[in-house]
Structures are given as structure tokens and as C-alpha cells.
Simulated assay, not measured.
Amino acid sequence: MNAQDSSARPQVALARVEADGRILWTVRRGDEYSPLGITLSELLGLAADEARARVEQAHGGGVRPDRVLAPIDPHQEVWAAGVTYLRSRDGRIEEATDGTPYDRVYAAERPELFFKATGARVIGPGGAVGVRADSPWNVPEPELGLVLDAAGDLFGYVAGDDASSRSIEGENLLYLPQAKVYTASCGLGPEIVPAWLAEPPFAIALEIRRDGALVFSGSASTDQLARGLDELAEWLFRGIEFPDGVVLLTGTGVVPDADFSLLPGDEVAVDIAGVGRLVNGVMRVGRGGGART
């Protein structure tokens, strides 16, 4: 079972697992997995007090997971916020042909929000996130994910990786969707920690290993965010409804130096204290191509 080390896991979390050929949502307490009885989409459609009661009433164990899957239903969506940390602003300016828009959005009232992935495209723990074959400069972006219910209220937290092409985004801001949305560009997991069992700020750490050797490490804290978590959630729900809930990645405060790029075969670990440790491999995705003629 590709779960994280039990000594580092939160004591209670929601896990989507495969067991005996079935995919189930469970509540994990220690090493005991109990059926939740409904999907995450259904849970996030309930009133907040009802959703909490469903989680707290899930007892009895009985599930023996063969695999821990990405903690999201296939039809749910992941969105993301950008330029929410000072280091992220500086990194975007560093890569961009014109960094002025990043400087402006960092201080603006309205945040940068963008679509990232459907649940069916999200990579779970132990899977491989992608780097684009047509991009020479690719990085992971370790981020705290907010699991929001249908009303836009916070239900829980999850660790995420907003894998990105810095070369494509830096070439032209209109290329942002191509830099952010592609095969295996989003990692989530390993589990969702209910909001009533965890409290920010959260320390976020990133480690990248190549052939077993540590080639990059960095850390940040969510108390360095330029915007409040509730503020980001409120802006997302201003223009769109999510009747099945949604995951909102809140931006990264860890940006590798300009001379670093992910390579296929690397191992990426996103560790958010009190939330979870997400470990993924790296693979090349898409088709390479030369310049247009």
C-alpha cells in the first residue's frame, strides 16, 4: 500500500482507496480504515454540520486498502491561485519576458485564479507527475489545497503539486493554460484532513531527489501568504458554482532557482506539517516539437 509513513500521518483523515477491486471513500483513524458510505462529492454537498457528523460517525474499520488513490472524485475540479507569496512573485518576474503583470496582481484586490485539472486527471500518491516534452524548464509547485464544500466553506486540507512549465509561462502570459494544464500536471494527496482537526499556519517543505540524491530542498509557511485562505475561496465562488465542491490550491512559496528543471525519473516530495506528505515520480508527457515555420 502506497501510503505515507504512519508515524508522520495525521491521526484522522479521509482517504480514497482501492480495496478488493472496489474504490471507496474511507475515514482513516490510525491504521484503521472505515467506510464513509458516500463519495466526497456527496459529502461536500451536505451542510457543514452534517458533513462533519458523517465523518465522525464512520467507525468500525473493515477496509484493507490495496492502494491509496488521489483524494478527489473524477468529475470534481481543481483550481489554483497564483502569485500569492512574495517568492512566487519574484520567480514569475524572473522567468517572464515582461514581469509587470505579476507585480501588479500580487498587490491587486482581485487574485489570479485559474483552472488546473479535473479529478480524473489528478495524480495520487506514488504516481508520476508530468513535465512537458516541449518545455525545457519545468518545476513542481508545493501548495496547500483547500477542500471547499458546495457553499464555498472550508471542509478540509490536502497537499498538492501544481506542476508547471516556467519556460512556456515566461514566454507569454497568454500561454498560462498550456504552462499549467496538461497531462499529469496536478498531484494531490495522500489524504484530506478535516478542517476542524488542523489549524494554520502550515509549514510546507519540498524535496526533489535524482538517482537517490537530494538535488533541491526548500520550505515556506502559509503565514507568508499575501492573502487570507478565506479570501481566496470567496473570490473563486464569486463567479462560479461548485455543487460537488472543489479543491483550491493556494499558491507556492517555494520556487527552485532558475538553473533547475525537473527531469523524468526525479522524485518529488511535498510535505505539509499536519496535513500529509505527497510523494510522486516524474515522467515526460506530450509531444516534443520545434518552432513553428
Rank of each mutant, 00 (worst) to 15 (best):
Y102F: 15
F242C: 10
I240N: 11
L249K: 14
L69W: 02
R29S: 06
P243W: 03
L14C: 04
V27F: 01
V268M: 03
Y106T: 06
T118Q: 07
D49L: 13
A47T: 14
L40R: 07
H75E: 04
A195D: 12
G218C: 15
R16Q: 15
A184Y: 08
V27Q: 00
V246R: 15
P65I: 12
L173G: 12
L173H: 13
K180V: 04
T26Q: 09
P194D: 14
A213D: 09
G289R: 04
L86A: 14
G253A: 05
F114Q: 05
A273S: 15
C186H: 05
P101Y: 14
L236Y: 13
T252L: 08
R92Q: 09
F114M: 14
E112V: 10
A8S: 15
G187F: 07
P243F: 14
L214I: 13
I168W: 02
R277A: 01
F114C: 11
L40H: 01
G130L: 00
A150Q: 10
D211T: 12
A80L: 10
G288S: 08
V129E: 00
V247E: 05
E18M: 08
R16C: 04
A150C: 12
S7T: 13
Q11A: 14
A205Q: 08
A3M: 08
P140S: 06
R210W: 14
A53S: 10
V270T: 02
D257G: 06
P194A: 07
R227K: 09
V254Y: 00
A13D: 07
G160C: 07
D230M: 06
L154R: 14
D73Y: 14
L146V: 12
C186D: 06
Q57A: 15
G160A: 09
P200T: 11
W79M: 07
V193A: 01
A19Q: 00
G170K: 11
G253C: 09
V254S: 03
Y102Q: 07
V68M: 02
R52P: 09
K116I: 10
S7F: 04
A220M: 01
E199M: 11
Q11P: 05
F202Y: 05
A213T: 05
P71R: 09
G245V: 09
G170A: 08
R64H: 02
R238H: 10
I123P: 00
S221I: 12
A58K: 00
D153I: 06
A233L: 05
A80K: 04
F237E: 03
D20P: 04
M1V: 07
L206I: 01
G126M: 07
N2A: 03
L36W: 06
F202L: 05
L43A: 13
A179M: 12
R22V: 07
V275D: 01
G253T: 09
I38T: 13
L44S: 10
L24N: 00
L148K: 06
A203P: 08
L197K: 14
I93C: 07
D230G: 05
G281P: 01
V105Q: 06
A15P: 01
A159P: 07
S221E: 13
L144C: 05
A159M: 12
G288W: 00
R22T: 02
T97G: 06
E77I: 11
